Computed example of a mutant assay.
Amino acid sequence: MREGAGRWPLVGREPETDLFTEALADRRWRGFVVGGAAGVGKSRLAEECGDRAAAEGLRVGRATATAAARTVPLGAIAHLLPTGVDLSDPVAGFAAVARGLNAGPDRGRRVLLVDDVQLLDSASALLLRQLMDSGVILLLATVRTGEPQGMAVTALCGGDVVRRVELTVLRAPQIEALLQTVLDGPVARRTLHELIAASGGNVLYLRELVLGALTAGDLRGDGEIWHLREGRLPGTARLTEVVGARLATADAAGRSVLELLDLCEPLPLADADALAGPRVPAALERSGLVRVVQDRRRVTVRLAHPLYGEVLRAGLPVLRRRDLLLG
């Protein structure tokens, strides 16, 4: 196996990285935003773009916005600001920050990578937009779709000087190429189909499934080709944590619908509406947790990803299961 538990190679995202290289060379661009659902590889792509900028000799700063840092003005980017700058006066403070960032022998435009920009506080967003518009920084940001988009996204991701790309799940040929690179060898067709079906093309899910199968000894190479032991596709604790956090974005009513779907999907849309009200399935669909499928006159609801059902099932007590089925 060529790659361990570290960063996986970037396979299938070459067009997006080339677009960043173009934005880097053209000073008219003030920002490059990578959007997409959780786990599709936004952060990995942004890291690759940051590495490209560093290889070109640009200074690259990195920050991650979090819900906790959001409660503190400038909390996520404080470590990137020049020391001793007084930001109590926004106008004078911005000028001081701009001068500080341009000071020193390696002066010039910086690239600032901000992960999960939708969680950025308003003070950070306003300051970064000023630095973008003045040409001091090129913002390289990731934003998670399917979640509320607040003031930071509006301030930083809009306008005709910000280039935005949307990542989707990987297609089957991209997954095959990625696995062959990671495992340093071809994968059996049945194994490939099982990994594609289980991951849904989500890079994070795929990574955790492969690492789990390797650790358990269920994914093995015979010197020529990699095979997954039939009926064995363990994940990792990290995978359960990631999927659980995704499911936790649903409120109590939405969780009831998800749990019922785990037990008896596909579920007629009318039954889901009766259980929680019509707004709840609609909200779950908008957030990417369920799919609503219409086949002629029949409209059904399904979980959007097979791994959602596995995690839901593992945490569903027997009595709760009975209540759902009898309700």
Rank of each mutant, 00 (worst) to 15 (best):
R189E: 13
G185K: 07
P173L: 14
Q180L: 05
G223Y: 03
V97L: 10
G223R: 13
I225M: 08
G100V: 09
A197T: 05
R229E: 15
R232Q: 13
V165I: 08
G135V: 00
L204R: 13
G185S: 12
D115N: 02
R229H: 06
I175K: 04
Q174Y: 07
V161P: 02
M151N: 11
E194T: 08
L156F: 05
V203Q: 15
E208A: 13
A152R: 02
I196G: 04
V153P: 03
L178Q: 09
L178P: 09
V161K: 04
D115V: 06
R163M: 08
T181S: 12
E147V: 12
V165E: 05
R129D: 00
V117R: 12
D89E: 08
G158T: 13
R232K: 06
L131Q: 01
R232H: 07
L113N: 08
Q174L: 09
L228Q: 01
R107K: 12
L204N: 10
G223W: 07
L101Q: 04
G201A: 08
V162P: 00
G108T: 09
D89I: 11
E147K: 13
D89T: 04
E208F: 03
I137W: 02
A155Y: 00
Q180K: 10
E147C: 08
C157K: 03
Q174K: 05
I225R: 13
L206C: 07
V97G: 06
A141Q: 07
G93I: 10
L119E: 13
A155R: 01
D222W: 12
V136L: 05
T215H: 15
D160P: 08
Q174V: 06
V182H: 07
A92T: 13
V162R: 00
S124H: 14
L128R: 00
A152V: 03
L139P: 09
L156M: 03
V187Q: 05
F94D: 07
S134N: 05
L126D: 10
A213G: 11
V169W: 14
P234H: 07
D133I: 01
A92E: 11
L167T: 12
V210H: 10
G212K: 00
A172I: 07
V169Y: 11
L113P: 02
P105E: 07
A123N: 11
W226P: 08
L113T: 04
G100W: 04
A125S: 07
G159Y: 00
A152C: 01
